[in-house]
Structures are given as structure tokens and as C-alpha cells.
């Protein structure tokens, strides 16, 4: 029996063993080459965005191969900063509300044993499988009466609605991983059901909360459909709608467009880069995957 099957073998020791045979070493470099090629092809469109954003515009005085003048022009000459602010505000509020509502609801979904809870779980699954466009048309009519069309408040409300079902699910899936014996011990000490949720379960659910927050963040930051339906005036635009105004029939200034694109993709990349160890798509399928 090899050392690798002993439970205490460290990954490092396992790798030393892996380097032992020449065939395995060759396999490793072969896999590395495949990955390198696939990754290189895959990120071409993203590299292109960054590359174009750094190119001097046609007829520009700049002679260096790379320049930040597109960013200067975009920030000074257009509404991009305003749109960025709109996007940030809408996204932050959506994230906060989504988590604040989904966190307690997920607890009920995870711990509740009644038929009603099972029915609610099914309802949420059905809702998240429906096209947003179905809900958008009636909401547009409703919001027109309430003066919420062309308003950031209106858009935020729709975002909260569209994140709700998956957010509740993700929270429930995370709570499922916390043993109920923790709360039972708390109840025995006289902690209330609410106290048990907040002080025992929620306190230990930071990864679940962050996962849900990242999901809500990506959904509202990356949305195009809802914003394009509801937002009408330039000063209310969020970035994805704003950047569309840069496209002209024949003479799109790609440097400017790509500078905005870089601004638009940085926040999700940063958020995901910093928090990705907390994010598990498992959470999205988790509740389905069962308990």
C-alpha cells in the first residue's frame, strides 16, 4: 500500500510522489499547454477591451503606444462618472436589501418542516425559472402609474424582486450546512427562536451572506434588460445603458467605448477577485441538491 492512501498524507508529499515518474511529469506539462492555449484564446475578448482602451485615438497628439487619454476624455467629457455613481448606488442598495430580506427567509426555508414551507420553496424555484421579460411588462405599467418609470428607485425595486428567489435559496443552502444541534443547545439555554437565528446561525454564515451578496451584486451590476426598459433620461442611466450612447452608425470611437467598458468590468472583477473564495455556485444549486 502506497503512502498516498494514508489519511495524513499532505498534498505536498502527494505531489512529490507525482513528480516521481517521467510519464506523469510529461502529462502535467501536456495539460499545462492545453490549459495555456484554451485560456489564451478565451480571454482574447477581454484583453482586447483593455488594449483598445489604452490606444491613442485617431489624430491624437499622443505618440506613445499606450495612453490614458481615453479615460481622461471619458471622465471629463461625458456623463460616465454620473452613470458610474448611479450603477454603484443602485447595486449597493439592491445588495443590502436582498441580503436583509433573504437571510431571515432562508432560515425559515432551511429549518421549517411544514408543508407551507415546502410549497414556498417550490414557488421560489418556479419563479426563478421564469423569464424576467414576463414580469417587466406588467411592472412597467404598474410603475408608470406610481411614477417609478425612469427612476433609479424603480429599477432598484425590480432588481430586488429579481434577485429574491435565488438569494433566499442560496442562504437556505448555506444554513443547511450548519448543524441544527447548535440552535438546539441555544434553545435549551433559553435563547429564543429569533435569538438562535441571529446569534447562532447568522453569526456563523458569513460565507453564505457573502455568496448571496456577490450574486446580487453581479445580477444588478451586469443587468441590461431592466435598465433599458425603465431608464429613459441620460442623467438616470446606469453604465450598461450609458455606454450604448457611444455607438454611432459608422464612426464608433472604440477607444472611448472600451474605456467605459473597462470602468464597467473593474468592480465585478475586483469584488469577485477579493471574495471569490467565499463564493460557491454550489449555493445556487445547493437547495436543489437537497439536504
Amino acid at each position: 500500500m502506497s503512502a498516498a492512501t494514508l489519511p495524513r498524507t499532505s498534498p505536498r508529499a502527494a505531489s512529490r510522489r507525482a513528480t516521481a515518474t517521467e510519464a506523469e511529469l510529461r502529462g502535467r506539462w501536456w495539460r499545462f499547454t492545453v490549459l495555456l492555449v484554451v485560456t489564451a484564446i478565451t480571454i482574447v475578448p477581454i484583453v482586447a477591451v483593455v488594449y483598445l482602451s489604452l490606444q491613442p485615438a485617431l489624430g491624437s497628439a499622443v505618440t506613445a503606444p499606450f495612453t490614458l487619454e481615453n479615460f481622461g476624455n471619458v471622465f471629463a467629457g461625458t456623463n460616465v462618472l454620473l452613470w458610474l455613481q448611479n450603477s454603484l448606488v443602485v447595486t449597493m442598495i439592491t445588495v443590502v436589501i436582498a441580503v436583509a430580506v433573504a437571510a431571515p427567509a432562508g432560515y425559515v426555508l432551511s429549518r421549517g418542516r411544514s408543508k407551507l414551507v415546502a410549497g414556498y420553496s417550490l414557488l421560489l424555484f418556479v419563479i426563478q425559472s421564469l423569464p424576467i421579460v414576463t414580469a417587466v411588462i406588467p411592472l412597467f405599467i404598474l410603475f408608470a402609474r406610481l411614477n417609478l418609470v425612469d427612476s433609479l428607485t424603480g429599477v432598484t425595486i425590480v432588481y430586488v424582486g429579481s434577485t429574491m428567489s435565488v438569494a433566499i435559496w442560496m442562504m437556505a443552502a448555506y444554513y443547511d450546512s450548519i448543524p441544527i444541534s447548535l440552535e438546539e443547545a441555544g434553545w435549551m439555554d433559553g435563547v429564543s427562536v429569533f435569538g438562535g437565528f441571529v446569534r447562532i446561525v447568522l453569526r456563523n454564515s458569513l460565507p453564505g451572506v457573502l455568496s448571496t451578496a456577490i450574486f446580487a451584486f453581479l445580477l444588478s451590476w451586469n443587468d441590461y434588460l431592466i435598465a433599458t426598459v425603465f431608464l429613459r433620461s441620460d442623467y438616470n442611466y446606469t453604465l450598461p445603458i450609458g455606454v450604448q450612447t457611444f455607438f454611432q452608425q459608422n464612426s464608433t470611437n472604440w477607444g472611448l467605448v472600451m474605456a467605459v467598458a473597462v470602468v464597467m468590468m473593474l468592480p465585478p472583477i475586483i469584488v469577485f477577485g477579493v471574495l471569490n473564495k467565499y463564493f460557491s455556485v454550489g449555493g445556487i444549486g445547493g437547495s436543489l441538491a437537497g439536504k
Binding site: 430580506v101 427567509a105 414557488l123 414580469a135 406588467p138 425595486i157 429574491m164 428567489s165 437565528f197
Partner: peptide, 29 residues
């Protein structure tokens, strides 16, 4: 029971949002 009341309070905001922003629009459609 106190437990059921608490559970209802925890889930109620989400139910209201889901009914208003998801269920109602679909039925209206």
C-alpha cells in the same frame, strides 16, 4: 406558537416582495 410567529415574521418580508414583484406581474401578464 411563539416559534411559528417568529418564523412567519422572518419570512414575511420576502413573501410580500415575491407576491408583489414576481407573482402579481406574472398573473397580470
Amino acid at each position: 406558537s411563539p416559534r411559528n410567529v417568529t418564523m412567519l415574521a422572518l419570512v414575511l418580508p420576502s413573501i410580500l416582495l415575491v407576491l408583489l414583484l414576481n407573482a402579481y406581474p406574472v398573473l397580470y401578464a
